[in-house]
Design a protein around this nucleic acid. Structure first.
Length: 491
DNA sequence: AAAAAAC
């Protein structure tokens, strides 16, 4: 997550100095990216030390900042980690944190979650934290510190919803674990050119595996991925991985195989979104398979929207004018403020929008799951290197994708539930918004609406997050878009 | 509808 840091320093410093209003979790983000200024925003976490005199559930909330709530189960005492030295990490891992990641001390969510992850009996954990607050660094650190470097066998497994996210997480692991000598392997579909069937490969000996469910299952069923030494299993975007029908079966299959081979394996569920029903459902699955209690870390949904990202709605008279808004406003203004991701509902509308913009002479790239692996990799690489400015995407990139220069997100189509098209998909909405404003940076989101249904959906989203979404009107006013970006702190 | 995956 913290790669390319030096390349982005100029924009971020400027942004950091501009923010004067009340900041909550954004403080944490600045600690992660700007160690020099971190000392002034020392998080007050003493109150998070668990009161072990009480049995059963104890709830701990920081009086100064209630945005993150830790709930522990049982009587294991935990003390929040003020320094990485408090966590019994190896010197090699500490070096990775300080030298490679340029961390100075644990971020807030690390301070709360790492003691729960690392303290025996290494209970399971369901952890929710804001988009762009450093969940990845949390569970990567968790995996690296629980692996025994001397044992040549898979000991940590991380399951992600897309191959892009798996690759991104692996990059963080390699960086943080640079000096540890811990080995790792990506379990994602290879591009056909250098594809070796798993049956023809030797058993996996890498200590950390990060991948997507299908490939992991395939390796597992081929008996090439041993689970008997597995110490820690991480679900990134866990609500999605365990509640979404297409993912759930594979996820459960993997969990059961691990429980069978090594019952003491620890399970971590990480996401920015855990809808109450999903939370209950997901924790029940894990509890039933591993027959064990778990700790929790949560954020209230009202406090989940990113304060640093301004959200807008734009009423467009028809579909064509949505394309005009993109062309005349977003692309023109977007160029001045950073990179842009435009989210669409389907692969088809992605292709349609791509065609329209290209035929109008604009340079955009488009990513969706039907592309060849190598094309996907190329498009992501170009975007991450800043060679492309505007990326059209399906919800492939809605979750987890981390590119700090993305300041603008456009919802060309609002996210809706597939079975009930008048019902917003609140989680996807929040995740899309979270692609802008990484680590407390400024950002703006434009929701393009063009009929009553869109209005209805937008209204529901505002109500759900208890957020006011300002209107940019009229839709074709250059001035109003400029004002919007100014108010977002981007111009 | 989209995401993963497939021999």
């Amino acid at each position: 997550m913290a790669d390319n840091e030096s390349a982005t320093a100029s924009t971020t410093d400027q942004e950091a100095s501009k923010s004067t209003e009340t900041k909550r979790w954004a403080d944490v983000a600045e600690e992660e990216q700007d160690v020099a200024e971190a000392s002034s925003t020392e998080p007050k976490l003493d109150s998070l030390a668990i009161d072990d005199s009480r049995l059963g559930h104890s709830t701990l909330t920081d009086p100064d900042d209630s945005s993150i709530e830790a709930v522990t189960s049982g009587d294991t005492p935990y003390t929040s980690a003020k320094r990485f030295e408090d966590l019994n990490l190896s010197p090699e891992l500490l070096k990775g944190l300080y030298v490679e990641m340029k961390f100075e001390k644990p971020s807030k969510i690390q301070a709360i979650s790492l003691p729960m992850i690392l303290t025996p009996p290494n209970k399971n954990l369901i952890a929710q934290a804001h988009n762009g607050s450093g969940k990845t660094t949390c569970f990567v650190l968790g995996m690296l510190s629980r692996v025994d470097p001397k044992l040549t066998a898979p000991q940590a497994l991380c399951i992600c919803p897309t191959r892009e996210l798996a690759i991104q997480n692996m990059e963080v692991l390699l960086k943080m674990g640079k000096f540890t000598g811990i080995t790792s392997e990506l379990a994602i579909p290879a591009d056909p050119a250098n594809y070796i069937p798993i049956q023809k490969r030797p058993p996996i000996t890498a200590q950390v595996i990060i991948g997507t469910p299908g490939t992991i299952c395939k390796w597992m069923l081929a008996k090439k991925l041993g689970m008997s030494q597995m110490k820690i299993l991480v679900f990134d975007e866990a609500d999605h991985m365990l509640a979404e029908s297409g993912f759930r079966d594979d996820s459960v299959k993997i969990m059961k195989a691990i429980a069978k081979a090594n019952f003491s394996c620890q399970v971590l569920l990480f996401s920015a979104t855990f809808d109450d029903a999903v939370k209950a459902f997901v924790s029940k699955i894990v509890e039933e398979i591993f027959v064990r209690d778990y700790n929790q870390m949560f954020v209230k949904k009202e406090e989940l929207s990113l304060e640093s990202v301004k959200q807008y709605k734009v009423h467009c008279p028809d579909e064509l004018s949505k394309i005009m808004v993109i062309k005349d406003r977003i692309l023109e203004l977007g160029e001045k403020v950073g990179q842009t991701i435009i989210f669409v509902r389907s692969r088809n509308s992605a292709a349609m929008l791509h065609k329209s913009l290209v035929s109008l002479g604009y340079e955009v790239t488009t990513i969706q799951g039907a592309l060849k692996q190598e094309d996907r990799d190329k498009i992501i690489k170009e975007f991450k290197e800043g060679l492309t400015q505007v990326l059209i995407s399906t919800d492939l990139l809605a979750r987890g994708f981390d590119q700090k220069q993305v300041n603008l997100v456009v919802n060309f189509d609002l996210p809706v539930r597939y079975d009930r098209p008048t019902e917003p998909d609140y989680e996807v909405y929040l995740h899309r918004v979270g692609r802008a404003g990484r680590f407390g940076r400024k950002g703006a989101v434009f929701n393009l609406l063009c009929d009553d249904r869109d209005d209805l959906i937008m209204g529901k989203i505002e109500k759900y997050f208890n957020a006011q979404i300002a209107e940019v009107a009229p839709w074709n006013s250059e001035k109003e878009f400029e004002v919007a970006l100014e108010n977002a702190g981007l111009l």
